[in-house]
Amino acid sequence: MKTVNYMKITFPAMAKNESLARSCVAAFAAGADPTVEELTDIRSAVCEAVTNAIVHGYRSVAGDITLTLKMTEDNCLYIKVSDKGCGIEDVKKAMQPLYTTAPEEERAGLGFAVMEAFTDSLRVTSRPGKGTAVIMKKKLTDKFES
């Protein structure tokens, strides 16, 4: 499907950039005139992915997070959140609801569950020691179609 718009930003893995990331995705998606619900869903999903990169990917080292956004002709928003952090040994296990390796930070182990529930598809690729990439797709309501 033809790409009609795209954007790529890189920012340091700092907690205050969680709000920056979700504002960016909201601003980008606004061009496609999404519903308030769709907007909230994608803001939450992006926030979870970025928080994961900060809390887990860069737990012991500093680094950058890259947020790549793409809008296609059929009103699908593609979101990629990637880091060059520690990576995930067992992606399947990490994606299990309530599983967390950061209970001391009061992480509920629901990051991937939220991403999964609030988008149409979620794919996670990771290499230990190299980093993690989370790719999500969200179909936005096409108001002209309905």
Binding site: C47, E48, T51, G111
Partner: peptide, 13 residues
Amino acid sequence: SFMDSSGIGLILG
């Protein structure tokens, strides 16, 4: 006005 799974951590904590 916005909440992600951190809200769940806050409640359970």
